[in-house]
Amino acid sequence: MITVDRLTKTYGAFTAVDDVSFVCQPGRVTGFLGPNGAGKTTTMRVMVGLTLPTRGEVTIGGLRYHDIPNPGRHVGTLLDASAQHVGRTGREILAIAAQTMGLPKTRVDEMLALVGLNDDEAGRRLRNYSLGMKQRLGIAHALLGDPSVLILDEPANGLDPAGIRWMRGLLKGYADRGGTVLLSSHLLHEVEQVADEMILIGRGRIVARGDRESLLAGANGTPVTLVTSLDNTALGAALTHAGHAVEPVGPGLRVQASPEQVGRTALGAGVVLTDLRSGGAGLEDLFLELTSADAREAVAGLAAPTTGGLPA
């Protein structure tokens, strides 16, 4: 488990991370979301001792990273997949790490197979790797020591759709086996399908946290649903009548109500639904709103389910 306690990092007069506290629990995937320059990478770098905090501290399983002997065996890190000597082959990069950690050579081949790099690709030099191949190698590097904690900075960066799906399954499986997973992203939809909990950060401050539902519920008290039916006009009228705000989007309607409420209203109005979805767009809007340039303060009323620390 990762505990970030009142972490602040300043560069001169600039505050990159501002009094951030959160906890990543074992058995869960924690998503770390925020726009460019929000302070995600900086926070993760402090976790593994590459950047010294100005104030506050981070512990992993109760220990400071510096105090973990052979840390690669406990904490798997992917910060920047291209931060490697470009003249080494993929296999050599993993072999060096395996040798440092005292792992058998067979582990390298296992990891290469796991991330889908074949023999030929593993023998190419890093400068000839594609973005996604580098990323796969970086993931293999993070998993090499069979760690119980994973810290991954934008792991999906550059992966193809199949790769992203594969990675989601991998991380879920990792958490299900009791691992602690923290992954960052700026793409909400990339994270919301895999994360049990999300931390939203903007300009160095946590602006919201919680699981998908509590984030949506906290946004404005009402979830958003996207619905398409055979008679949108009649459905729209019925929903308005029931007191829900409705606006047309694309082929359907965007309703400020839960999918269940929309379904019941449609049932009452006798309209056939062709598509009914919880409005991911609601979360997307929330995300943009919370992390927009002037949203530096926390949004009131958002729960902080796991930390009991700062009022979010």
Binding site: V48, G49, P71, M101
Partner: peptide
């Protein structure tokens, strides 16, 4: 980055 993550 990697060297000093594996041996802080």
């Amino acid at each position: 980055l990697v060297t000093f993550t594996l041996e802080p």
